[in-house]
Write a protein that binds this DNA or RNA. Sequence first.
DNA 1: ATTGTGTAGATGCGCGTGCAACGTCCTAAG
DNA 2: CTTAGGACGTTGCACGCGCATCTACACAAT
Lengths: 155, 155
Amino acid sequence: MTLTASESRGTISSEELVVWRMLQRAQVRITRLLEADLLVEHDLALASYDVLTQLSESPDRRLRMNDLAERVLLSRSGLTRLIDRLQRDGLVEREACTSDARGLFAVLTDAGALRLAEATPTYLRGIRDRFLDVLDGDELRQCASMLTKLFPEAE
Amino acid sequence: MTLTASESRGTISSEELVVWRMLQRAQVRITRLLEADLLVEHDLALASYDVLTQLSESPDRRLRMNDLAERVLLSRSGLTRLIDRLQRDGLVEREACTSDARGLFAVLTDAGALRLAEATPTYLRGIRDRFLDVLDGDELRQCASMLTKLFPEAE
DNA sequence: ATTGTGTAGATGCGCGTGCAACGTCCTAAG
DNA sequence: CTTAGGACGTTGCACGCGCATCTACACAAT
């Protein structure tokens, strides 16, 4: 694929548009495969996996609902229901926040940590096979630098 | 960001994992902004826009339901309902397929083409501002080459 | 203390989606 | 011609999500 240098703004070449479309398709496709793996092997949706991961990486395995919602790209109400389900399955618990009576912590349980540990190899293998292994080290570095430009808010 | 060369398979460095996470977040974020633009300015969901685009680029502005579903990454039933809505709004019509009585064409109407033409500047501007303009020509080329490796099935 | 403004999280509701099942139609094997 | 197996599109159903709204609480100004 050759990109004509229409870097002067105002118009978009069809090749540029195709890059965006391919990005969309690749991302959706990989994500769906990943989620299918987790669902089949561990009965865990991708959003649930993300929640467990975020909690496991947080101090005391806990996070305020609001913070957690932001990190997993969910609305507050969406996270409320997701935590409902995870709590029903015993993977997460709700705990009051002493310093702010409005606040709640979502806390990872031992069962949740175990479930996460079981699922993580599946997750990592999926990403490795479908993403990391397909690119070489240079490409990965380029990818990282592009992403920091595209998404400066990232940690 | 520095990536250690753990290109030998089997393990994944945390830096590599972060690249994937950033990709997820960037893609979701840009897509949501894009969809919000289309929704606010043209009352058009992204999936609807994609359908109209695919139809407009197809011979005789028509596509079999099945083909269309694949192109817009929707299940058959999902596309059935989406076409229902678009037909209700007069942007698309269903037409029987003479050579195969099982088949149906989704056909772009004049109103649909007009609506697409109205919405396209919004769409292009969104992609330009949030994606294309952020990267330079070299980066876009690299991106394209990575994507063809990640998603070989693309046209 | 009181009042007003803002924030945290939960809930009612509607929407869009996928899966499984169904009817219809095609096609190849006998 | 008949029949079996598959393909195409639609429908019933349940699920997950976001928006608007609500309650409870925090904090600052008076």
